[in-house]
Design a protein around this nucleic acid. Structure first.
Lengths: 108, 108
DNA sequence: ATCGTCTATCGCCGATAGACGATGAACGCT
DNA sequence: AGCGTTCATCGTCTATCGGCGATAGACGAT
């Protein structure tokens, strides 16, 4: 955080960005998916389906949401697509939330 | 993190709890509300309405969601209800997310 | 060439979220 | 008593979410 941010620039646009990231994380299935992706390195869709007891189409949707949020990297490897957690992006979200919380609790 | 958590106990039930908290934070208006509540100490609904350019009923709804998620304390003070950020709860959420992210990035 | 497998996408649905206006209750003030 | 203010709730509308089955494309294996 080095740019001189006024209350305006910090507040409005940023809230939307953070909210979008958090929205992608605000579903138990997607959290479960993230856990599984990080645990096993393989990361094809089918494996997640087996692990999660949801229809394949549903899992594919959740994966798409995670990819669009930038939290998971996607590589359409011929047959078995590979999904991989984007650790940096994930840490970014965590840091953003921490910053928000911190700014909310500073005047304590 | 002191209790002996297996992967099972950590995974399933917990995902839902974390997801619920994050869901409450996954809307720009609610983040904006949190910012405003922490900035100004006064915390009545009307003030948030002025600041936010949303209908009073809408703001009331968002506040209710934050209260039900346990992130904001609510005290029906006669006329002017008082809303106040629950810093501890907020830090809990941040910590939960950090733990999740950490467990996802540990094997890096 | 054909079959089986794995994906992504489409269409459909029920449920929920998010917004609003209207309403009524509680309260302070004159 | 009457008025203005504040707030929570209700009803309504629309858009989106979350789930599923079905389908089509791409590929490996036989």
């Amino acid at each position: 955080m080095n740019a001189p941010l006024t209350e305006k620039t910090c507040g409005f646009a940023d809230s939307q960005a953070v909210a979008a990231k958090l929205a992608a994380l605000s579903h138990p299935a997607r959290i479960e998916i993230l856990r599984h992706l990080s645990a096993s390195r393989s990361c094809c869709c089918r494996e997640v389906v087996d692990h999660l007891d949801l229809a394949q189409s549903t899992v594919s949707q959740h994966l798409k949401i995670l990819v669009e949020a930038g939290l998971v990297r996607y590589q359409p490897d011929r047959q078995r697509s590979r999904y991989e957690v984007d650790s940096d992006a994930l840490e970014d979200v965590s840091a953003s939330l921490a910053a928000l919380v911190n700014s909310c609790c500073s005047g304590r």
